[in-house]
Computed example of a mutant assay.
Amino acid sequence: MNEKDYQLQVLDLKISQAIALIKENRELEEQKDFFNNLPEWVTLDTACKLKGGGALETYRAKLFLQPCCGTNAQYVCGRKSWHKQDVIEWLSVTDHSLKAYAEKYGVTIPANYEERSKQ
């Protein structure tokens, strides 16, 4: 390998690293924008749309699946709502992590969901 080839490889590596950093920064900015654009208080309907995965009626019927396991809510214009920071934390909760999340709020979950947390 001659000096010119070596310099081209180094340049190619640096360009690849720069592209990766730009992509990472863009993703962080998009995430920051997403969180900044959430309203201060989030209804169950909006929270469920953001989270995905389950039907709104399931979340309504099973309080332990709601943000803060149905606790920590306030009523805003007569609608049950959670502060956006609580919703942001809840968005990453899966069945696997539900038991630990529920314990944080002093909520007991049904046995079948507790089994899912062990898997």
Rank of each mutant, 00 (worst) to 15 (best):
residue 1 M to G: 15
residue 2 N to H: 15
residue 4 K to E: 15
residue 4 K to Y: 11
residue 7 Q to S: 13
residue 8 L to C: 12
residue 8 L to E: 12
residue 9 Q to E: 10
residue 10 V to T: 05
residue 11 L to Y: 08
residue 14 K to V: 02
residue 15 I to V: 11
residue 16 S to E: 11
residue 16 S to C: 04
residue 16 S to R: 12
residue 18 A to W: 06
residue 18 A to N: 08
residue 19 I to G: 01
residue 19 I to F: 04
residue 21 L to D: 08
residue 21 L to C: 04
residue 24 E to A: 07
residue 26 R to A: 07
residue 26 R to K: 13
residue 29 E to G: 00
residue 29 E to P: 00
residue 31 Q to G: 03
residue 33 D to G: 01
residue 33 D to H: 12
residue 38 L to A: 03
residue 38 L to M: 10
residue 41 W to Q: 06
residue 43 T to D: 00
residue 45 D to G: 11
residue 46 T to H: 11
residue 47 A to F: 03
residue 48 C to D: 00
residue 54 G to S: 04
residue 56 L to T: 00
residue 58 T to D: 05
residue 59 Y to S: 06
residue 59 Y to K: 09
residue 59 Y to V: 09
residue 60 R to A: 00
residue 61 A to C: 07
residue 63 L to N: 06
residue 64 F to E: 04
residue 70 G to L: 12
residue 71 T to H: 12
residue 71 T to F: 07
residue 72 N to W: 14
residue 74 Q to K: 15
residue 75 Y to W: 10
residue 75 Y to A: 13
residue 78 G to T: 06
residue 81 S to H: 05
residue 82 W to G: 02
residue 83 H to G: 01
residue 87 V to I: 00
residue 89 E to H: 02
residue 90 W to V: 01
residue 91 L to R: 04
residue 94 T to K: 12
residue 94 T to A: 08
residue 94 T to N: 09
residue 98 L to R: 07
residue 98 L to M: 10
residue 99 K to A: 14
residue 102 A to M: 10
residue 106 G to S: 13
residue 107 V to R: 15
residue 108 T to A: 14
residue 108 T to C: 12
residue 112 N to Q: 10
residue 113 Y to V: 02
residue 113 Y to F: 14
residue 114 E to Y: 10
residue 114 E to N: 07
residue 119 Q to T: 03
